[in-house]
């Protein structure tokens, strides 16, 4: 077991290392850099910038070095927790991401919990009441949930919140709390606002998980051991939840492996539409402005979360199914 974990962690380090190289190269491929954009801006403002100044800037940011030297400098710093400097924000990348990560994680975590709490019971109900009117209704809602674009759902909920509930929707806080320090009142205010993004972010995966739960449970219900459980004299509820659902959870558990990276960037569109200060919009902006170190740090962070998430999912699966061995 310990051997297994050590081996997996070593693989993970190698994987992340290679991802970082590829990501670095990819981000350097398009011409131009954040610095060019900055120079452009300065020129437009009327400032005359000499070649000398440009070269000085490039020298300072190390842009004259070959790519592999740039990479080695960056990865050397990254190992020590220094992810470089953002060109556009003029601030350390680490600080920028950390200042917003709490919002991202809370949003996505709630969305994840929302999806599971809704999807499992609804999926089970749908499967055990197959081809009844409620099942058809659930199925229609599922397809709408999968098909509807997030931004549209976000806008619809905003309109609903503003016109029906008469609340100051959008953002994570009301006006007066926007820049206030954290307090009890601000927390309550946040809770009042957070349901809109949570529903929007969770809608797609809820619908998908419900569908998977239904399909899988229908499969499992045909297995002989479900009939064995009934023949023992167990209540139908126990038969379903203890003997069938437990064996139908595998794909849901495996989907958790890919859920971790979405914790920091899964809500890009929603955060932009709803004006939420999370990491998603920052990631998008960094790509648009070619803010190299910021963008690549995001990519690296997500790949770390992906491999860690997969490891955790494997552990969960081994815990849930005795036939899975971690060796």
């Amino acid at each position: 077991m310990v051997n297994y974990i050590i081996r997996r962690v070593l693989y993970m380090i190698v994987t992340v290392f290679f991802i970082s190289i590829i990501a670095f190269i990819l981000i350097n491929l398009p011409p131009g850099s954040a610095l060019d954009a900055q120079i452009q801006r300065l020129r437009q403002q009327g400032g005359d910038i000499s070649m000398q100044q440009i070269n000085d800037l490039k020298e300072r940011y190390g842009l004259n070095d070959p790519v592999y030297v740039q990479y080695l400098k960056w990865i050397g710093g990254a190992i020590h927790g220094d992810f470089g400097q953002s060109f556009t924000y003029n601030a350390p990348v680490g600080e920028l991401i950390w200042s917003r990560i709490a919002v991202s994680v809370i949003l996505s975590l709630f969305a994840l919990i929302f999806a599971w709490v809704v999807a499992i019971p609804v999926g089970v109900y749908s499967a055990t009441h197959r081809y009844t009117v409620p099942d058809y209704i659930v199925t229609v809602i599922q397809f709408v949930g999968i098909a509807i674009p997030e931004f549209l759902l976000a806008l619809l909920l905003l309109v609903f919140a503003a016109t029906v509930l008469h609340m100051d929707a959008g953002g994570l806080n009301s006006q007066q709390f926007q820049n206030a320090p954290w307090s009890w009142a601000k927390l309550m205010d946040t809770i009042k606002h957070i349901w809109i993004p949570v529903i929007v972010i969770g809608a797609g995966s809820t619908a998908w998980l419900t569908r998977v739960m239904r399909a899988n449970l229908l499969d499992v219900l045909n297995y002989q051991y479900v009939q064995t459980a009934r023949a023992k004299g167990l209540k139908e509820n126990v038969v379903i939840w203890k003997h069938a659902v437990r064996n139908a959870l595998h794909p849901l558990i495996m989907s958790l492996g890919t859920a971790l990276p979405t914790l920091i960037s899964g809500e890009v569109i929603v955060s932009i539409v709803l004006n939420i200060p999370s990491d998603g919009p920052l990631f998008l902006a960094s790509l648009q402005t070619k803010d190299m170190y910021l963008a690549i740090t995001f990519v690296l962070l997500q790949s770390v979360l992906l491999v860690v998430g997969n490891l955790l999912a494997d552990f969960l699966l081994a815990w849930a199914d005795p036939r899975v061995r971690l060796e």
């Binding site: 002989q224 051991y225 064995t228 437990r246 199914d321």
Partner: peptide, 9 residues
């Protein structure tokens, strides 16, 4: 079917 009549979990 003895192979499938016991719950694997």
């Amino acid at each position: 079917e003895p192979m499938t009549s016991l719950n694997p979990s």
